[in-house]
Amino acid sequence: DYYKILGIPSGANEDEIKKAYRKMALKYHPDKNKEPNAEEKFKEIAEAYDVLSDPKKRGLYD
């Protein structure tokens, strides 16, 4: 669930989505986080943001 990945409610607005994305992206960026699964988690976060930040894609997802 993209909302769960970003840690936001399904009714989140654009600003909340952007803030959550930035926070999670910094936390899991492969250059900052050396955990083995950090890169995979970072890709999931980027995919979630891509879908939820685009009103058309978000509409299809919801």
Rank of each mutant, 00 (worst) to 15 (best):
Y2F: 14
Y2A: 05
Y2I: 01
Y2N: 04
Y3V: 00
Y3G: 02
Y3L: 00
K4T: 09
K4H: 05
K4M: 10
K4F: 07
K4W: 03
K4D: 01
I5L: 08
I5D: 03
I5A: 14
I5F: 04
I5K: 07
L6G: 00
L6R: 00
L6D: 02
G7P: 00
G7K: 05
G7D: 09
G7S: 07
G7W: 00
G7N: 07
I8N: 01
I8S: 01
P9I: 07
P9L: 07
S10R: 09
S10N: 08
S10D: 13
G11T: 05
G11C: 06
G11S: 07
G11I: 06
A12P: 00
A12R: 01
A12G: 04
A12C: 07
A12L: 02
N13G: 08
N13L: 04
N13Y: 03
E14D: 06
E14Q: 07
E14S: 10
D15C: 06
D15K: 03
D15Y: 04
D15Q: 06
E16V: 09
E16A: 08
E16L: 07
E16M: 06
I17F: 00
I17T: 03
K18V: 13
K18C: 09
K18P: 02
K19M: 14
K19R: 07
K19L: 15
K19F: 12
A20Q: 08
Y21M: 07
Y21N: 03
Y21D: 02
R22Q: 15
R22D: 15
R22K: 13
R22G: 15
K23H: 14
K23W: 14
K23C: 15
M24A: 11
M24C: 07
M24R: 07
M24D: 01
M24I: 09
A25G: 07
A25R: 10
L26V: 15
L26N: 01
L26R: 09
L26D: 12
L26T: 15
L26F: 15
K27D: 12
K27G: 10
K27L: 11
K27N: 15
K27H: 15
K27A: 15
Y28V: 05
Y28M: 10
Y28Q: 05
H29D: 02
H29P: 11
P30L: 10
P30N: 09
D31Q: 11
K32I: 02
K32R: 11
K32Y: 06
K32S: 04
K32T: 03
K32C: 02
K32Q: 05
N33E: 12
N33V: 15
N33D: 15
N33M: 13
K34L: 10
K34M: 12
K34Q: 15
K34G: 10
K34E: 15
E35S: 09
E35K: 05
E35M: 08
P36K: 11
P36W: 06
P36A: 11
P36V: 14
P36Y: 02
P36Q: 14
P36H: 10
P36I: 13
P36N: 11
N37C: 09
N37E: 08
N37P: 09
N37D: 06
N37I: 01
N37F: 09
A38F: 04
A38P: 06
A38V: 11
A38K: 13
A38S: 10
E39S: 11
E39M: 11
E40I: 14
E40T: 11
E40Q: 15
E40D: 10
E40S: 13
E40W: 11
E40C: 11
K41N: 15
K41R: 08
K41S: 10
K41Y: 13
K41G: 12
F42M: 03
F42C: 08
K43H: 15
K43N: 07
K43L: 13
E44W: 08
E44N: 01
E44P: 11
I45V: 07
I45W: 00
A46E: 05
A46T: 13
A46L: 00
A46F: 04
E47P: 00
E47W: 06
E47G: 03
A48Q: 01
A48I: 01
A48H: 00
A48W: 00
A48D: 00
Y49K: 03
Y49T: 05
Y49V: 05
D50L: 05
D50F: 03
D50K: 13
V51I: 11
V51A: 04
V51S: 12
V51L: 09
L52G: 01
L52Y: 00
L52V: 03
L52K: 01
L52H: 01
L52W: 00
S53M: 12
S53N: 05
S53P: 01
P55F: 10
P55Y: 03
P55Q: 08
P55K: 03
P55W: 05
K57I: 03
K57L: 02
K57T: 02
K57S: 07
K57N: 11
G59L: 06
G59W: 03
G59Q: 08
G59I: 02
L60K: 12
L60A: 12
L60H: 13
L60E: 15
Y61M: 14
Y61V: 14
Y61G: 13
Y61T: 10
Y61Q: 10
D62Q: 07
D62G: 08
